[in-house]
Amino acid sequence: MLAAMRRTLPTLILLSCLLPGALPGGAIPPALAQAAPQAEPVRIINRTGQPATALHAVRSGRADWGGNLLNRGPLPNNAGFPMRPNAEAGCRFDVRLVLADGRESIARNQDICATPRVELYSASAAMPAPAATPNVAQARPNAQARRVSTGTGFVVAPDRVLTNQHVVDGCDRILARTADGRWLAAVPPAQVDRALDLSILNIPGNPGPALEFRAGPAVRRGESVVAYGFPLTGLLSADPKLTRGEINALAGLRNDPNNYQISAEVQPGNSGGPLLDMQGHVVGVVVAKLDSRRVQNVDNVNFAVKGEAAQAFLRRAGLPFRTAQSSGTDRSAADVGDIAHRSTVLLRCER
């Protein structure tokens, strides 16, 4: 169905991202260039309601959390910790508190140049250590590849990643960059559903914990959702991006019953990323957007494959997956992003 869509609807943009960036030679527009930050003092404030036993602050996108900065003991609730980062480290930082009960509070992509005060509030369950995978070696991107494009995928079962079929179509080699910075190679063959534009990749090496699909209640128009993925890789920063929006319609382009229309803004590179409700459960798979350059007076019209359609594909493939009811209290967008982060991977297609 989507293959026909490509032929008859030139205004639909499939959201894989061709590298390098949009400008010749991968140049960054001057408006996006960032001046070297000044080494101003930054305060990290603990608002979690309990002492923190560890504090980590690293440049956004770093694979590990580095050392514990609390060299003088725990950080009490409502107390602050002064930090003076190296001026060459940039402005964007990820900050984590490990709390006395084992939970953690994380604030990602904080612009400490614009706001030199980071307050951490909510705490989530501590993430379990990944299972050991001693026989899986890390892969290396091929710098000599003739053509490279990127997209997004997310873990749905042990060593299984769901993405769009168009993200991996025609690839000679597919690599996944995990949340902890490892590069893992996909093992062919992939399982595909071209009509839905979905593909399941086998990526040994524990790419992350499986996300849960929403089991109920039924998704309604106007519900808030979060899209998570890697848009415009090579132009924007290397870390994943979060956008928030709503379910606009319960059908897609030309009444496609397998898609939602969403207002969460997505760009090339978001293809295959999870669309989550405000409890962190998957309700869709980001797939496409309308090209506003070719459709007059239309902007920010985006689509996602429905979670129910994706679950049906996984069942047909014989792959068990996790589900959960969305019946509790909504989380913040930042907390939903933390859930998605450890399970979402950058996909690199080499040809």
Rank of each mutant, 00 (worst) to 15 (best):
I203T: 01
L99S: 01
Q138K: 10
T8Y: 03
Q261G: 06
G102T: 14
A185C: 05
P29L: 00
G269Q: 12
G208Y: 10
K289L: 07
R47W: 02
L346H: 08
A334M: 05
D180Y: 14
V156R: 11
V167H: 11
H341E: 11
A39S: 14
P207G: 05
E246R: 14
A195V: 05
L232C: 07
F93M: 14
I112T: 14
D330R: 12
R96M: 04
T329R: 10
T8L: 06
A35I: 02
S16D: 11
P20I: 03
P141C: 13
L290P: 05
V42I: 13
G245N: 15
G269C: 09
P82H: 11
I106M: 02
A317N: 04
T133E: 12
W183C: 00
L97E: 00
P29G: 00
R72S: 10
L2H: 08
D239H: 14
P207V: 08
I200P: 06
V305R: 12
A39V: 06
V95G: 00
R103D: 07
I106A: 00
V286L: 01
T323C: 10
L232S: 03
Q296A: 15
A288W: 07
V287I: 07
A129R: 13
R316F: 01
V345G: 08
V118A: 04
T48M: 00
G205M: 04
D256I: 03
A63V: 05
G245D: 11
A334E: 15
G252R: 14
P240I: 03
A210H: 08
L32S: 04
D197L: 08
F93G: 02
P188A: 06
I200N: 03
V298L: 15
A54I: 03
G272Y: 13
E212I: 02
L276G: 12
P10W: 01
P188E: 08
N68Y: 13
L19A: 00
P74L: 06
F213Y: 12
T243P: 09
V192Y: 13
S271Q: 06
R214K: 09
L18P: 03
A139L: 09
A129G: 09
P217D: 11
A137I: 07
V167Q: 05
N78F: 08
N248C: 06
Q144S: 14
R348V: 15
P274R: 10
P188W: 02
A22C: 01
G26K: 04
S105I: 00
F93S: 06
N202E: 09
A334V: 12
G205A: 09
Q296S: 13
T53L: 13
R244E: 14
G80F: 08
A210E: 09
D277H: 11
A334S: 14
N86D: 15
V225A: 09
V155I: 08
N135K: 06
R316D: 09
R47V: 01
F213P: 11
R244F: 11
S263L: 07
Q34L: 06
Q34G: 03
P74S: 04
A39P: 10
A54H: 04
L290V: 12
A100T: 07
L235E: 15
P24A: 14
G26H: 10
A27I: 01
G61T: 08
A324S: 11
G222P: 10
S237T: 04
A36N: 03
